[in-house]
Nucleic acid binder design. Structure first.
Lengths: 216, 216, 216, 216
DNA sequence: CATGAATGAGTATTCATTCAT
DNA sequence: CATGAATGAATACTCATTCAT
């Protein structure tokens, strides 16, 4: 599945309209932004890291902000791509008769995607609080499209009686929060301690599963 | 309970060693940092907002970073204060015979605290990724002390068979993640949409409760 | 008469709200702008010439453009000051019974003013083509107020039959052009060749006088 | 008469050694220089306006300054061309028995030339204060050659008693200043107000004529 | 001939910080 | 205690120019 790939690598390899220096700039910028944050990273720093002249950055990206957005846009558009939405459907219709299978498929799928693009995600999450446009995109695109489809699916499981009968907006939030919560703890808050990813993910799945199980 | 109060207000009111200008500086800095982030906020901006001269800031706080740390320190020290630790014990020993009561007490207590100090928390969470010292403090103090005590308590409930038998580090993470996950979604990612706090909190409690319930 | 003074000197001496460094900046800027032009002068250059740090310039003048406007504004406001307008009247009413006396008085008076402030004038004239706001000010303030009053006076001499009967807008233009033409040739186009100011001015007066004399 | 033509058009049309792109560059540069001034115009701007790549400009003109000089050179060389000097003679010898005829011919001729090339003239006049080489060329070529011949002619009219007996350097200056003064007011200082060119020119001629008439 | 990526010095402006008043 | 003038390094960005394609 393509969306399980590292987005950046795909772009760097497949996009041939991109020059060598441009690639170096992107890599350096991702590195710097994820570690020190957008605002605390200077363009001269990025240039030095990328081994290019400072002017070269601005030949390709009109402004520093433009560089950030260019960086994040493949992630954002991947997230809202129809393909991704279809994944949900495929996951749902084709093979997953019950909520557990669906959850497992979705967590595995999303978690892999998160992990493979964790640096870009880190930047996105870290910068969202400071950029209105980013937050707006996030809210209007991601939240509406992904969460919307997610909610429909939840609704159907609720009707089938496979999960508890609460508004699906809440059940989606609790599910997503648990997954993202793990990601944030893992990669942002406590990136330096050791994590047994497999175990933790299994426990997170179980946690969500039982947390949303219909009460007898 | 004092830790359910707005920390900043307490300091501004009770601390008499603090001058009027100093208070204005703190308020302005909190405002600016929480909205634009530490790195993107200039000291001259803070000075203007606070209605003081630029130099005045540096009379009280050696550096801009010092101002940030001063700002966060009451929050940090409240979090790791022995009093808070004792709260856990009190919650545990005195009255809460079972896990549900404990969880309810702790969630109510912590959530109130989060909400009352949401601006300071927002700053803390936003800045943690960018400041090693902050993250170190967080890891060594908060994680070790709070989570440590939390884990002990979880352990005891596990022994009593009230919750599922997984490493308490995981059960604590899942619990905390659900609570913080709500806070982050609520105040940082999607601060502009309407939230029914009471309902969502109740659902979150139920979610944790069932998610950690021993499997039959 | 105050308007026969060097405007800059007056400001540098009398204005006490101006710091020492600020004076140096103004002097350096005038020097640089008049010689190389506004656009070709860098703020770092001005700073170096003034012996101040570059930042100091921007503490006092928000932008480079602001520095230019601040520089020119005393000249501009002197030109449109009611006092200057009154000068015309005084020149006219009190003592000058005929056009020749009036012209002599006005040329002497204006030419002295031009010469004493020739550097500032040079800047104004050189920059007018490139700055819409400056040109607007010039048109709306100088042209309307000064030329307006000038025209009225011309009109009265025309009625008395002392000058030729053409629209006073034209006679004013021809007069002013001859005076300014001399100034521009003298200070801007050919500043390096020797000029016998007194003689040339006398010839210019005669030229205007006879050029506007009623035809028999 | 060829010198009454638009110099630029002639070059663009007749010069076949000039490429299409080069023409576009020249047109764009004239446009930009005349409006914003040489120093405030960037080569990339010119390239964009001309619809060519940045490098293309430098293929044809070694430096930006070179572009300016190339632009002005046809104007400058036209002004000092032997042909122009001969015009004076023709004007003088062949047909003009008296000063008035001569003045009329010369003003008409020169004014037409000024008007037809007003953009290039605008650039020349605007840039002269900032470029020593331009000023030097102007002084050595224009002033010496044109003014020199002009003075000789003036001298002859003076001897014939047709004009006042002042140094012809002064009479030339007064004449030229009146003509250029009109041009500058018309095209540089107040380009936006309406002008009745024919009337103003006639008045200017009359003004010069009577201004230089021998005093009885 | 023409391109446009690349450069590095330079641009106006802002920064956190100092210090004399 | 508070000010705000002063600083010089740093900032994002632009410049004229070069050169491989």
């Amino acid at each position: 599945m393509n969306n399980s790939e590292n987005i950046l690598e795909i772009i760097l390899k497949e996009e041939q309209s991109i020059t060598d220096k441009q690639k170096k700039i992107l890599i350096a910028a991702i590195d710097a932004f994820s570690e020190k944050g957008y605002a605390a990273t200077s363009t001269s720093e990025i240039a030095k890291m990328a081994g290019v002249a400072e002017g070269t950055i601005f030949r390709h990206y009109k402004t520093k902000k433009d560089l950030l957005l260019t960086l994040l846009s493949p992630l954002l558009s991947t997230l809202i791509a129809p393909r991704v939405i279809k994944d949900f459907d495929k996951v749902l219709n084709v093979s997953h008769h019950n909520f557990e299978d669906f959850l497992r498929a979705i967590v595995k799928n999303r978690m892999e995607f998160l992990q493979k693009n964790n640096t870009l995600f880190k930047i996105l999450i870290q910068e969202i609080p400071f950029h209105d446009d980013l937050r707006e995109t996030f809210k209007n695109q991601i939240a509406v499209k992904i969460f919307g489809r997610f909610q429909e699916i939840m609704e159907s499981y609720k009707e089938k009686g496979e999960i508890i009968s609460i508004p699906s907006s809440s059940s989606v939030r609790l599910t997503v929060t648990s997954i993202f919560g793990y990601f944030i703890a893992r990669h942002i808050l406590l990136p330096d301690i050791k994590w047994d990813d497999e175990e933790e993910i299994e426990r997170t799945i179980q946690f969500i599963l039982y947390g949303l199980k219909p009460r007898e």
